[in-house]
């Protein structure tokens, strides 16, 4: 659909794991850096390394996504005694968004400042959208221009999609496969 201002696509399921560092027990960031060749951010942000994305989603708290199905088990071994690892592969419903009006549409639903100078590629926000707790990522630009991803607990997926459609409706919405 050529004139759609916003394109929505439900992301395919991917392995996801929560990593919560035990206070004063080892060096989780160091261990992640060694395993994935990239420094896990200490503040809200997203980096990619060796097929996984590591997002800081709280103090000493990371969400690792991507890679092979055994990701949670691999992290459990890697971080044994240093962090609590939880399998969250089935917990999140992730929607990808892009389009010429994507920032304007998202601004109607989330409460953070989406000006490109404040929220650019690699930024992460834990915020609210349509009365739901969500994680919002600004991804690196792709062939389609600016890209965002938004994650919500699986049971809320229908409500979030409804809110996204309502927010983006005025710009024209295209739902991609």
């Amino acid at each position: 659909m050529a004139d759609a201002g916003v394109t929505l696509r439900r992301a395919e399921a991917r392995p996801m794991a929560g990593v919560a560092a035990f206070a004063g027990a080892g060096d989780v960031q160091g261990a992640l850096a060694q395993a994935f060749g990239v420094a896990a951010p200490a503040r809200p942000g997203r980096v990619e390394g060796q097929g996984v994305a590591i997002s800081c989603v709280g103090a000493g708290h990371w969400l690792v996504a991507g890679g092979e199905a055994g990701l949670p088990a691999r992290l459990r071994t890697l971080l044994d005694g240093q962090a609590a690892v939880t399998d969250q592969s089935d917990m999140w419903d992730v929607t990808c968004l892009h389009g010429s009006s994507v920032r304007e549409a998202l601004a109607r639903c989330v409460q953070v400042d989406l000006h490109p100078s404040r929220f650019g590629a690699g930024d992460v926000a834990l915020t609210r959208a349509g009365h739901l707790d969500v994680i919002l990522w600004c991804m690196a630009d792709g062939a389609v221009g600016e890209r965002f991803e938004i994650a919500v607990w699986r049971s809320y997926a229908g409500s979030l999609h409804h809110a996204l459609h309502a927010a983006a409706g005025a710009f024209g919405v295209h739902v991609a496969d």
């Binding site: 109607r108 639903c109 349509g130 009365h131 739901l132 607990w153 699986r154 049971s155 809320y156 997926a157 229908g158 409500s159 979030l160 409804h162 809110a163 309502a166 927010a167």
Partner: peptide
């Protein structure tokens, strides 16, 4: 109020 009304004001959770 915007869109925050009806079902959009109180989200619905569905089990798998």
């Amino acid at each position: 109020a915007g869109h925050h009304r009806g079902r959009d004001f109180k989200p619905t959770r569905l089990t798998p």
